[in-house]
């Protein structure tokens, strides 16, 4: 089943990205939408081996950077999601993570990824909004991601675990 993991993971990223830009803006809060790509990456990092999760984080970030409505400097989401995947992979213990651990990991990854993206904008002299505005975006995005965790993470983690029997059994 392992040969299927890349196609399945990439399909999950594509679906997440399209939902994120086409469906969720209708329910967005002041333009902030849940970062579904981040949820896919965290699900992979919590279930499968770290190199795969890191590469998936980079790929998902690159897709976010290049897919149509995006106009920021490419590579910023790739950086943010790679680091988020690394952190999420470090959190994982040998046993299956508890529900609380999953929610905590999503919250931490969301905070780190959105903040890293915002900080890279500050470094690149993007005419960004105020620090208060950035903080608001980071916190609202965190709440969105945590709210969607119960619906998105369990099926994704089950899917990834089934594609990696050698990790799922131990």
């Amino acid at each position: 089943m392992t040969h299927l993991r890349w196609p399945v993971a990439l399909a999950a990223v594509v679906v997440a990205l399209v939902m994120q830009v086409s469906l969720f803006p209708h329910v967005a809060w002041h333009g902030v939408v849940p970062n579904l790509c981040l949820l896919v990456v965290v699900a992979a990092a919590l279930t499968v081996e770290a190199p795969f999760a890191l590469l998936l984080g980079f790929t998902a970030g690159l897709a976010l950077d290049l897919a149509p409505p995006a106009d920021h400097v490419a590579g910023r989401w790739a950086l943010a999601l790679t680091v988020a995947a690394f952190l999420a992979a470090r959190v994982r213990q040998d046993q299956k993570p508890s529900a609380l651990a999953v929610v905590g990991t999503v919250a931490a990854a969301s905070f780190v990824a959105t903040s890293l993206f915002a900080l890279s904008g500050v470094l690149l002299r993007d005419p960004a909004t105020s620090v208060a505005g950035l903080l608001e975006v980071v916190l609202v995005a965190l709440v969105w991601d945590v709210l969607l965790t119960p619906f998105v993470l369990p099926p994704l983690m089950r899917l990834f675990a089934r594609l990696h029997p050698q990790w799922a059994t131990s």
């Binding site: 081996e49 190199p51 984080g57 980079f58 400097v73 590579g75 790739a78 950086l79 790679t82 680091v83």
Partner: peptide, 21 residues
């Protein structure tokens, strides 16, 4: 099972290269 630091560094550098480009 520890995330490999070398891969992290490589991917971060790749991102920074993209940003610079």
């Amino acid at each position: 099972r520890r995330p490999p630091r070398s891969l992290l560094v490589a991917l971060v550098l790749a991102s920074i290269t993209l940003i610079t480009l």
